[in-house]
Design a protein around this nucleic acid. Sequence first.
DNA 1: TACCAGGTAGCTT
DNA 2: AAGCTACATGGT
Length: 280
Amino acid sequence: MLTLTLSTDQPFNLDKTLSCGQVFRWARNDDWWTGVVGNRLIRIQQDGNRLTWDGADESFIYDYFALDLDLPRVLSEIDRDPVIHRAIEECRGLRIIRQPPWECLVSYIIATFTNIPSIKRRITLLCREFGNEISSDGEPCFSFPTREALAGAEECQVRACSLGYRAPFLCHVAQAIQANPGWEATIHNLPYEEARKELMHYQGVGRKVADCVLLFGFGRLEAVPVDVWIERIIRQHYLMSGEKANYEYLRRYAQDYFGPYAGYAQEYLFCMRNDIAKKE
DNA sequence: TACCAGGTAGCTT
DNA sequence: AAGCTACATGGT
């Protein structure tokens, strides 16, 4: 068991960070969160400013949860109106996790046109089918499928993980990535707009998934994924009623309005969606 | 039963 | 370029 004492001027809220919907492989039992990242099975708990965990070394935890990021500065940058201000007050300490790009890409392709409980269920099925077992005590746990495992999978077997029409997309993406091992470096080295276009060449990756992968997998904190909730929030709280706005308009609006850390504003607003977005 | 969910691909205008 | 629509599945 390892521990880490968080500095008091760098807020971190483990519960908000793991429950806000950015990651899909963590579950909470009592005070402990259990999750799988890469080949690591991690158990972690927060008690005030003390973090206790096992399954990973300190440098991994520090980087995964972006504890090196100056969060107060980020939050003061995006704190531009009462709506986002309330989200900041409510969710302070939520940090955008640095997800492994491959896992992030596959996860957010699976996350299209569905709901969060279904996403979690489907990813669990996919890992059980194509991942490696990494623990036998208690209930079995499986690592995320590698590119090779998924590239070699039969489409019907992928489809059997309740993935529906997404199955061929996943097979296609796995094969394309396997054939292009340098994809991560390519994306890393491209400016935002071009990186986005590059990602959108993959089947199943449109504007929204590309923005999710850039934000959650490549640390592009200016990326603003616009899902149905963020669209409602922007329309209801930031635009004139009836103002014409497609995806690109909404995304650019948020980026211009919130600035270089607009992705953080997006995630704080998403976390508050049930309180500030009225359906209809 | 009908509607909705962290949208995308492919087609039409 | 911008606007439609089918799409698999499960939850409410």
